[in-house]
Design a protein around this nucleic acid. Structure first.
Lengths: 200, 200, 200, 200
DNA sequence: TATGAATGAGGCTTCATTCAT
DNA sequence: AATGAATGAAGCCTCATTCAT
């Protein structure tokens, strides 16, 4: 009787938006754990809804994935854009690496799976992201903190490849994703340092 | 009865071996073009055989992929091992990069797809390969041609990630795979150069 | 408490009745346009209510169809019965044809669809109607205005089949449903004229 | 041992064409019995094949129906065209009626169901058929065996409507489809007789 | 009472694999 | 041994109906 003051207990407000979020969360977990080998039914179950509800929110499997990727890309770009536009090249690069590693880290098997499945098509989704990396690299080269003759497209591609690499899982085993981001930053800043410099 | 036992047998064996090769070739083409979204029937058709024949050579889909990867890995390792064991670290690295780019280049969408689909399991397949990269890097660091404090596992993973990256397709657009191998070599040798050095 | 028991109730009743009518109207439109390929949700939308309201009025899809047919049958029978019982056979037949064409005309694809879907069961719904046609034909035969040996069940079935025929749409293209009713009347009265007669 | 002379017993020659025919036969039966409420699985079962086989022969449900209707239409048109082009109008009409009644009779619930489901679209399929009826009627009118002022499109539509009418089942109860064809012929020839004539 | 989000049984279809020829 | 038709488990999706708000 005392509890009756609180929100109804039996069924938390059947808020459609909340369900949408729960579905996306469940999808992220499931796909991250097992790549694309996940049935719609399982996503629904993990989200605690029926398949019908899943389909009410996402027209079909493809759209669910689209939404998941879109959401993540937005999240990542938001984190990165700040750093890019407010910090100096070196620390901007560190910030980007940290954000990317953390974000892609959440995705586990999905990151690879999606790229594999969608191939070139989904590469488009990465264009904005790669463009930001390139921007930072170019700026750093112009300012003299990075090598002047840096092969920017290649360096950016190298970073991006690493972010979606299945090898990350193992590399992160010791120091976690935070430690890994640090290692990558260290490696990369040395890799792109000016020819005359001896310490970054 | 006795003669029919032999003559046909050899011919059959030859046919059979040829078929096996044609199937693997067809599979490589098909998977390279469209990732894992390829039906067994299509592989058979491209190979000019019936599905039954395909299944006579490979117990199931998984085994076909295994064989395909095995074959490729063998090919790649053969090309690389020589260089690793006979050349100095820098040129060994260049040789590895060239061989890898060319080999992975053949695979297109497949490289990513397979890794994505199999996750950890197929990563094992890459272990030997990554071990060779690490060996070269370690040797170079010991000999003073690469940085002494190089994060070898990370550097090796970075290279490997790049080799299977879908970004290669675009990067290779201008100079082809040969030119790309050159760019990657240049970038990496600078990236791992000793701190005191100003030119690799 | 006592007043709130009455005033709202009436209003609710009125609303409810209005809703029921709107739902039936929407259902008629929708089914007429696209046959049985209509979802409950669409009927509700066209009626401007939620599906829940639709289900408050009609227990399930079947009942909605039942009500729709019942309503139409009543409407049609009301229009016909007068004519049948007050007019001479020939003009009674003309009146029936006019009423039928107009009524079935409203139904479009539904008429066929319902019969098709329900088969024998819904045929019962037509029994009364066919009985009226037969009555008129028999009377006309008895009075000598129609052929004495007329195959009454067949003639009635022929008329009824025509009324629900999808061909009506095209036949009505030129002269509209009024003109079509006239053509059908002319044709049928000649078709059933006594053998000795030369003009109907 | 004596039986071994005959065709293998366990599995009659897995003749694909035979399967196709069995599937069409099963589909005709099933659809005729229950209209469109038939699952693909049931059609396959009735045909004694797996669903996969059904789908090997017919891309999807729609195509199965298409094939069924096409086949039937061809069959019917072939029967009719002969009559139309070789016989005098009156007996041609009789022949058409007989063929139509028999053919549509086989279809039972399907004839209605298909028309209902496909509506106008499938009406196109009837065009050729209706055209033949009209041709006969026009010729008869020209030759003076039918009324000169006959409303040919309406008369043809009337016949066609009757052929697909659910009422046929009941009308055929007494004399079977042969008897019914006779009744319809008698009725129609009288219906279209010249105004001056007293017996057809 | 009205609403429409949620439910999930059930239908359609695919495709790896088997098997009769 | 080669063929490709046949198989059917399994996945995606729809839609009549229910139920919490």
């Amino acid at each position: 009787m005392t509890e009756s003051l609180h929100a109804p207990r039996r069924a938390e407000r059947a808020d459609s938006a909340a369900n949408r979020r729960r579905i996306l969360g469940a999808a992220r977990e499931a796909f991250a754990a097992r790549g694309l080998d996940v049935e719609m039914r399982e996503v629904a179950q993990r989200a605690g809804v029926g398949v019908g509800t899943l389909y009410r929110h996402f027209d079909n499997r493809e759209r669910l994935l689209d939404a998941l990727l879109e959401e993540t890309k937005d999240e990542l770009l938001r984190r990165i854009e700040d750093a890019v536009h407010t910090e100096r090249p070196a620390s901007a690069l560190r910030a980007m690496i940290r954000a990317s590693i953390e974000t892609y880290g959440q995705f586990g098997a999905l990151a690879e799976a999606v790229l594999a499945h969608r191939g070139v098509r989904s590469r488009e989704g990465h264009a904005e992201f790669v463009a930001l990396i390139e921007e930072v690299l170019r700026r750093g080269a112009a300012e003299g903190v990075f090598r002047a003759d840096l092969d920017v497209p290649l360096a950016a591609a190298t970073l991006e490849s690493l972010f979606i690499s299945g090898a990350l899982l193992e590399l992160a085993r010791d120091g976690g994703y935070a430690g890994l981001a640090q290692r990558i930053s260290d490696f990369f800043l040395l890799a792109v340092r000016p020819l005359s410099s001896t310490s970054p």
